[in-house]
Design a protein around this nucleic acid. Sequence first.
DNA 1: GGCGTCATGTAATACGTTACATGATTAC
DNA 2: GTAATCATGTAACGTATTACATGACGCC
Lengths: 185, 185
Amino acid sequence: MELSKTSYVILGMVKLGRRTGYEIKSLVDVSTRFFWAASYGQIYPELARLEELGLVTGEADSSNGRRRRSYDLTKAGQRALHDWLTSDEQLHIELRHEGALKFFFSDGLSAEEQLDLVRRVRDTHARIAEQLHAIEPAETGDKPPAPLLTLEFGIAYQEFLADWCARAEERLVSAESANKTSKRR
Amino acid sequence: MELSKTSYVILGMVKLGRRTGYEIKSLVDVSTRFFWAASYGQIYPELARLEELGLVTGEADSSNGRRRRSYDLTKAGQRALHDWLTSDEQLHIELRHEGALKFFFSDGLSAEEQLDLVRRVRDTHARIAEQLHAIEPAETGDKPPAPLLTLEFGIAYQEFLADWCARAEERLVSAESANKTSKRR
DNA sequence: GGCGTCATGTAATACGTTACATGATTAC
DNA sequence: GTAATCATGTAACGTATTACATGACGCC
């Protein structure tokens, strides 16, 4: 593979408009970071590399009174982005979920400890869902553009996770009370 | 932080029974890998390190005719595992989803290309859901132990994602037909 | 005899985060 | 004037994957 997935985040952000590295990072932090994060340590070197490859062109830009470097997509960059978007290669999908991991190993825990754990996981997702709800959609055209649909997806995703935890909590509570009842007999 | 999350995967697997590095890898590949993966390159060096730290004890084990090294949890290892399970530190939750990423940048695509993309994402999740359905629960005790509940969670998770894609497909199709109708007028 | 699996391990490489260094401009 | 933000970049570090090397055992 020529480019990393993170390179496409950069190309995509530049496609949406002339961008500086700083702007790309800010945009990523309120949008793609929930399913594809990126840091300065990746963005700046990668912008330089993409320029070498002829996929973006950078130029000094003092339009806002600050010294900075803005990038545009080249034709080759547009092609690379489109090729990636329509490629039928296996999608990279990866989850690292410490809550699920703890849950998997939670058989040694007491009922209360288990419940605490599920509650913490639910809180985490509920908080992220709130965060996403707070993101104001910048423009409201007639057709919902992809970033808006993706935001909707993110909200549904976090709420699904929070709901699943809520249902698991109910199950744990009722299992526990059933257990106490049978012991009392 | 003393130990990485992956160390706890190892400790957890050893808690479930005396294990070799090879066994840990095999177990991870059919269980935690869907929310926390691990490779030989992590497992073997980390087992050695955990032994140095006194959290596991390894010993040569030829019980099955092959030369191998099996590990057990020490008291300190059990404590470390329990402390992690009940710790209230921020949970590490991270998603890398190339499908969502492409979707976010899909505004330049044609309606058909967009639809293809969503279909590919749905297929991916539907396939993983099937894979999970195929995992036979080893033991069926009266109370569902945590690994089983986690498997249920994994199935619900993948099915949620596939369903969301299916609904998105419907929306795309109806938006497209509405668009054609209005153009015809 | 050969293939598949069991089994251990490491080296090279890639990927990604964090922290730091540096400095200009803007808002209060 | 000073704090926040804009802005660029790198070095150190940590994490993880891939590929390779090696070899024994069991089944057909």
